[in-house]
């Protein structure tokens, strides 16, 4: 099956700028999946999106969308894609419905077709009530949803989302995430950039971590499913919080016996933590041991490392949000 998106050894230097924005960027996204481009500001995420959407020309390398070359077959590529940029690119003065009808006409739907598609999408994105209101008076989340609706007028084969939730409150982010999931259910391939690890975790089937490393320009330094990336920083961890500080030595002894490694003990939070191999066996042994020794546990979890920990490990940088 033809990959929905490919990029091979893309290089791009902006005129007048010393460093390469992209230096050997590679990517392959199978159809019907969500791929996350994760990285701090300046890692080249937006440059990659602009090249793949024909807005920017690469200095060298090759990229295709649904098999069409972005450099030499730009017109074909534009028929396959939808783009939601960093700013909600909708008309602020017109109302929501007129925006959808106008873009529908620009996608060459008939006047009647554009109107009925507008009503469908307003309904689908929960904007029917605001259809007659000027977009300038929409909330950030509503504006983003309208932006997504516009990009879905033709239900593109590949949808590019460049930091779709930057600047939104948690409710707005959840709204956008729901909308993206609905699009993927319809068969659209999504390429999404984000600097939020939880967003990549929530939405992406696979993640490419993009970063500038030393003298080298932006390139993919790690690629895999969120779980694969996590396993790079080792396996699961066990976290035990006890109720009484007096139980800490006994709890540490128990964790040491169960996991076979020396636990970290934090007296202030009454927490005992250690890496663990077989998570299910460890959990069962912990529950049994706690009851046996009469330790009053407040919380007991076996958890995977967070993507923050992954990113720290990969780049040597602190969490992405802080780095940005």
């Amino acid at each position: 099956m033809t990959p929905a998106v490919t990029a091979e050894a893309i290089r791009k230097r902006y005129p007048g700028s010393g460093a390469l924005a992209l230096d050997g960027f590679d990517l392959s996204v199978p159809p019907g999946t969500v791929h996350g481009l994760l990285g701090p500001n300046g890692a080249g995420k937006t440059t990659a999106i602009r090249i793949l959407t024909t807005l920017l020309r690469a200095d060298s390398g090759r990229a295709t969308i649904a098999g069409f070359d972005v450099g030499t077959q730009a017109a074909h590529v534009r028929r396959q894609i939808g783009l939601v940029g960093q700013y909600a690119a909708v008309d602020e003065i017109l109302d929501g419905r007129r925006n959808l009808v106008m873009f529908g006409r620009l996608f060459h739907l008939s006047p009647a077709g554009a109107r009925s598609r507008a009503d469908e999408l307003l309904e689908r994105f929960g904007l029917t009530g605001a259809a007659g209101r000027s977009v300038g008076r929409y909330s950030g989340g509503m504006r983003r949803r309208l932006d997504l609706a516009v990009s879905m007028i033709l239900a593109p084969a590949v949808l590019f989302l460049d930091e779709p939730t930057t600047g939104l409150d948690p409710r707005g982010r959840a709204e956008v995430w729901d909308a993206v999931r609905a699009l993927v259910a319809g068969g659209t391939t999504v390429l999404l950039t984000t600097q939020y690890l939880d967003e990549a975790d929530q939405l992406a089937d696979r993640i490419s971590v993009l970063a500038h490393m030393g003298e080298v320009g932006g390139r993919v330094i790690a690629e895999g499913t969120p779980d694969e990336l996590r396993s790079r920083v080792g396996g699961d961890r066990i976290d035990l919080v006890v109720h009484h500080p007096a139980d800490l030595p006994a709890a540490a002894g128990l964790v040491r016996r169960v996991t076979g490694s020396e636990p970290e003990v934090d007296a202030a939070t009454r927490r005992v933590a250690a890496p663990v191999g077989d998570r299910m066996a460890a959990l069962a042994a912990m529950v049994h041991g706690l009851r046996e020794e009469g330790i009053d546990a407040e919380d007991l979890t076996v958890r995977r490392p967070t993507l923050d920990e992954v990113f720290l490990q990969l780049t040597g940088a602190p969490t992405v949000e802080v780095a940005a």
Binding site: R79, R105, H108, E120, L154, A155, P156, G186
Partner: peptide, 27 residues
């Protein structure tokens, strides 16, 4: 109320390019 299964490429033929340029400009 389907958001739409992929139907990209369902676009007019190349031959009507000038007509669409004028229609787009009018829109």
């Amino acid at each position: 109320a389907d958001v739409g299964h992929v139907r990209a490429g369902v676009l007019p033929a190349e031959g009507s390019r000038l007509r669409w340029a004028l229609t787009d400009a009018a829109t």
